[in-house]
Design a protein around this nucleic acid. Sequence first.
DNA 1: AATACAAATGAGAATGATTATCATTTGTTA
DNA 2: TAACAAATGATAATCATTCTCATTTGTATT
Lengths: 141, 141
Amino acid sequence: MQQPEDLKKAGLKLTLPRLKILNLFENSSERHLSAEEVYKQLLSTGEDVGLATVYRVLTQFEQAGLLVRQHFDNGKSVFELNKGEHHDHIVCLQCGHVEEFYDPEIEARQERNTSERGFAIQEHVLHIYANCVKENCPNKT
Amino acid sequence: MQQPEDLKKAGLKLTLPRLKILNLFENSSERHLSAEEVYKQLLSTGEDVGLATVYRVLTQFEQAGLLVRQHFDNGKSVFELNKGEHHDHIVCLQCGHVEEFYDPEIEARQERNTSERGFAIQEHVLHIYANCVKENCPNKT
DNA sequence: AATACAAATGAGAATGATTATCATTTGTTA
DNA sequence: TAACAAATGATAATCATTCTCATTTGTATT
């Protein structure tokens, strides 16, 4: 675990809440977590962290580039560890399961379409809403 | 104006608020309007419509296929007249100006990437956040 | 045109996610 | 170890949106 270095590099003090939250993302089986989920996970393991702190830390980690935030259409945000490589998301409409994909041709065409219109692209969101095939998905496809 | 027919076709009563809102979308110079903007526009023209009604009607129109809702990352939704043809959006980060584009190759690749993973695609959101070149945009590019 | 009734409306309360406030606690640095 | 800014937790506040419910309005019927 080189978490402490990550935090120092980002100019953030080494505090318990921050270490716990970062640790959660690095060890959880679920790659995509909402603020509420992070909060509940911490509570369930006996940690005493306030919800406000969870939101604050998540936002700081996003700004520091440690996490990436995804806004979904249901109005909720989830966070994921920044792997450094961009990717888009497929979200199951039934169970919320999230899968990632990357298509260089789509990326290139986004860039082209945007610059053709005189815009300077800053970032983009490509979310595909679909029905997945997971065992426990309430949608029996 | 064949608005009344549109409403009847959708199984909606012809009420003043509904006609006014639909009319607004068909005559406004701004194609993309938020609920708040619709509400303010109506107030400014002396119409007496409640904000709750605006939200209700907007949702009904969306379900009836008259309008399309776009959720942006800032947590706000805008609505636009349904032209029947799908398109994606470029949003200016400074002034909020919205532009539309369509790239069949991007569409095709979304479909391919999704089905390859065993998902049945239902819909998607492709929003590009950029800096625009409008005269009145606070961003002097 | 008057009646009847469900559907629609408006005002304001309620909600849910997120952010701000502020007194108290905790890292860090001298 | 003192000293002080930064961080935290509890809670209030905010913002967009939805819900509640008493009142009003289309519409279909006499």
